[in-house]
Amino acid sequence: MSTAPEIAALLPDPAQLRAHLRALAVLDSTIGDDQQFCTYSFDAAWGPGEEAALMENGSGDDFSVLFTPAGVLIRGFDHESEMSPYGTDDEQVWPGVIDEVPAALRPVLDEPAFRDEGIDVPRVTVCIWRETGDTAWRTGSAIGFPDGSEDPDGSGYLFHLLTDRSPETVRAHFEDYYERPVPLDAVRHVLAGHPLNPAIVGALNPGVL
């Protein structure tokens, strides 16, 4: 079973995670021909002292990784998960998912961007966090995951490129999404944090001007 605690154990430290998410956004925006179809983005000016990495697949699933002075909060939503607020009788967040989020990071969940009209709770099925100065990622400690699913909270599906950060896996994802070959060396270049240059841009998207 893939759940938030298992995923949290596979995440890198916040600085490495930030660099990887920025690289995913660069790859997506470079490989793609139309920005509206990109799934990964990075906002370096989300708020005062805050940055946000976002993923939205256009099918109702999304996640956000908010980097704040107080720490990092990862919020994910799998619309097909039994743990979705829309799947509960009282339209509440699944018990235990956000109950232990530290007070300093709690305001992130209250942002309008992560709430839907007509429902007064965050759009969330999985939540992971790490306060500044902490040495590990944390999740709710008393979540009763529903039976019958290998990925009950959607964490394995949503965060697969955050737990397996290899160039090969990242390339396979974008090749599948854009349905065309993507050169591995160019993916390695971007994931390593090197700046884009005309040769890399042309390799990632031969049709770009």
Results as ranks from 00 to 15, higher is better:
residue 12 P to R: 05
residue 11 L to S: 03
residue 17 L to W: 00
residue 31 I to T: 09
residue 69 P to W: 03
residue 105 L to I: 05
residue 108 V to D: 03
residue 116 D to N: 11
residue 39 T to K: 04
residue 64 S to H: 04
residue 20 H to C: 11
residue 57 N to R: 10
residue 99 D to L: 09
residue 83 M to I: 14
residue 78 D to N: 13
residue 96 G to W: 00
residue 114 F to M: 12
residue 111 E to F: 01
residue 92 Q to Y: 01
residue 56 E to K: 11
residue 118 G to I: 07
residue 32 G to K: 09
residue 103 A to W: 03
residue 53 A to T: 00
residue 71 G to T: 10
residue 117 E to K: 09
residue 26 V to W: 05
residue 69 P to T: 02
residue 19 A to W: 04
residue 37 F to N: 10
residue 113 A to C: 14
residue 54 L to K: 13
residue 56 E to W: 14
residue 40 Y to L: 06
residue 104 A to P: 11
residue 23 A to I: 08
residue 45 A to Y: 05
residue 64 S to E: 03
residue 55 M to P: 00
residue 40 Y to P: 05
residue 80 E to Y: 07
residue 47 G to N: 15
residue 24 L to R: 08
residue 93 V to W: 02
residue 119 I to W: 02
residue 23 A to T: 07
residue 10 L to Q: 15
residue 44 A to D: 15
residue 53 A to H: 01
residue 92 Q to T: 12
residue 80 E to A: 12
residue 116 D to L: 12
residue 78 D to L: 07
residue 78 D to C: 09
residue 111 E to G: 11
residue 9 A to T: 15
residue 26 V to K: 08
residue 105 L to D: 01
residue 34 D to E: 12
residue 82 E to H: 05
residue 31 I to G: 09
residue 31 I to L: 09
residue 99 D to M: 10
residue 45 A to L: 12
residue 31 I to V: 14
residue 87 G to T: 01
residue 119 I to L: 02
residue 109 L to D: 08
residue 87 G to R: 13
residue 53 A to N: 01
residue 115 R to K: 12
residue 58 G to C: 05
residue 8 A to D: 06
